[in-house]
Amino acid sequence: MIAEVTRTQQGYKAVFDRKLAHEPEHVWQMLTDNQKIHRWFAGLQIEQSGKDGYLTFDMGHGNFEKMAITDYEERERLGFEWGEDHVLFKLTPEEGGTRLKLVETIQALTDHTPKDVAGWHVCLDVLQALLDKKGIERTLEWEHWYPEYKRLFESMRVSFE
């Protein structure tokens, strides 16, 4: 399911809402155990967990971006800086599993925004496939979802080349 993107007073918000057939503890491990994170988002790593912690993102060529953890509640919330933006994962136990919401708060739309939002979509698809012990082809997923997000942002009267 495509993210819901809305305009806010501060910019935009993209909300992904997934129902996972797995306990919150298992979903939390996917978000906080570096060996598991690397399987669904290569280059992202928690260096220090907790409210005063931070993540790094490997930008390639030996460049790493440090991102502060802004919200941390064990098995419930993990929020962190994402460049000029912010990402928040929220886990809520539900019968038969976990409701996982990813909220990206976007300060300003750029030509990279559809790629970024499509990237989060694919990451969540991969995370879910890993939990379900199913295979998934990232490239095919990307080729499907990126044009969808590009159209979505263009429909908001934002044009990207």
Rank of each mutant, 00 (worst) to 15 (best):
L78T: 02
N63A: 03
T70G: 00
L31Q: 06
A68Q: 14
E84V: 08
Q29I: 01
G43H: 02
E84G: 03
D33V: 05
R39D: 00
D71Q: 13
W40L: 00
F80L: 11
R75H: 12
M67W: 08
I37E: 04
G62S: 12
N34A: 09
R75T: 07
L44M: 11
Q29S: 14
E76K: 15
R75Q: 14
N63H: 09
A68K: 14
D52C: 04
G60N: 01
S49R: 02
L78I: 10
W28L: 07
D52A: 11
Q35I: 03
V27F: 11
E74A: 13
H38E: 14
A68T: 12
Y72C: 05
H86D: 02
G79F: 06
I69M: 11
D58H: 14
K66V: 12
M30I: 00
H26E: 07
R75F: 13
D58A: 11
N63T: 03
E76C: 10
K66C: 07
L55I: 05
T32A: 08
Q35E: 15
F64W: 12
L31C: 06
F41I: 02
Q45C: 11
E65P: 00
A68S: 14
K66P: 04
W28Q: 07
Q45F: 03
G50D: 10
H61E: 15
L55Y: 08
G83N: 11
E73I: 13
D33W: 01
H61K: 10
I69Q: 12
I69Y: 11
N63I: 04
G79S: 09
K51R: 11
M67Y: 02
I46P: 01
N34G: 07
L78Q: 04
D33I: 00
G43P: 01
H26D: 09
E74F: 15
Q45G: 08
Q35N: 15
K66A: 04
L55D: 07
I37R: 05
S49K: 06
Q35F: 06
D85P: 04
W28F: 11
N34K: 09
D71R: 09
R39N: 02
Q35S: 15
Q29N: 09
Q35P: 05
Q48D: 03
L55C: 15
E81R: 09
